[in-house]
């Protein structure tokens, strides 16, 4: 049951030769799909945190200015 189907790396990359493109296209799409759906929320989160930090800094600056003016 647990036998390797391919004897060499090039044989593995060829996937029997006939449908090489199809098989690797599916696995490539899958990899893109996984990485996008893991990275996109990360980017959104990063963006959100930066935005909030900037906003907080700006608010602080504004409030300190009004204090000195008074």
């Amino acid at each position: 049951m647990f036998e390797f189907q391919f004897s060499s790396l090039s044989e593995f990359l060829q996937m029997g030769g006939v449908y090489t493109f199809h098989i690797w296209a599916v696995y490539l799409l899958f990899a893109v799909f996984i990485s996008y759906n893991l990275l996109q929320p990360r980017m959104v989160r990063r963006h959100f945190l930066l935005e909030q930090k900037r906003r907080a800094a700006r608010d602080e600056e504004l409030s300190s200015k009004t204090k000195t003016q008074n």
Partner: peptide, 12 residues
């Protein structure tokens, strides 16, 4: 790597 070729579909 391990799943055997299908008798109809082959590697696909």
């Amino acid at each position: 790597l391990i799943v055997p070729e299908d008798y109809q579909q082959g590697q696909t």
